[in-house]
């Protein structure tokens, strides 16, 4: 099958941020997202949620430009004050046109 390379950004965040994050991701051009419930701890040890240790994991596959915008947004609006981390992995997807919006 024909596949194209894309970046997948994975964001781990406090559950209370879900609505706001989804709104921001959409605004920056993400064509979709997937959220999973997760749990864990971070380097700062701030237990900001109740129950503590619970988090959400959001995954977005998008083109390089959108990914860049997302990472910049996270660095400006979320990293300073919230328990949020993000990393990139490289993925290959089928039906690549589904993920490329702008």
């Amino acid at each position: 099958m024909h596949t194209i390379p894309l970046s997948l950004v994975t964001i781990i965040a406090e559950p209370v941020l879900e609505d706001r994050l989804v709104h921001d991701l959409r605004r920056l051009g993400a064509s979709g997202y997937t959220i999973t419930d997760s749990r864990g701890e971070g380097s700062r040890g701030v237990r900001a949620s109740d129950p503590p240790g619970v988090s959400i994991r959001i995954e977005v596959a998008a083109g390089a430009e959108v990914i860049d915008r997302i990472l910049e947004m996270l660095a400006a609006d979320y990293f300073p004050n919230y328990a949020v981390i993000a990393w990139l992995t490289e993925a290959r997807v089928v039906r690549g046109e589904k993920y490329l919006t702008r």
């Binding site: 209370v16 701030v46 237990r47 900001a48 109740d50």
Partner: peptide
């Protein structure tokens, strides 16, 4: 309050340390 207030504060006053209020 420990149900309604925590998310309201977390979203509006992110610099407030959750350890204190929780």
């Amino acid at each position: 309050s420990y149900i309604a207030a925590p998310p309201a504060v977390r979203l509006t006053l992110p610099e407030a340390n959750p350890t204190y209020y929780l």
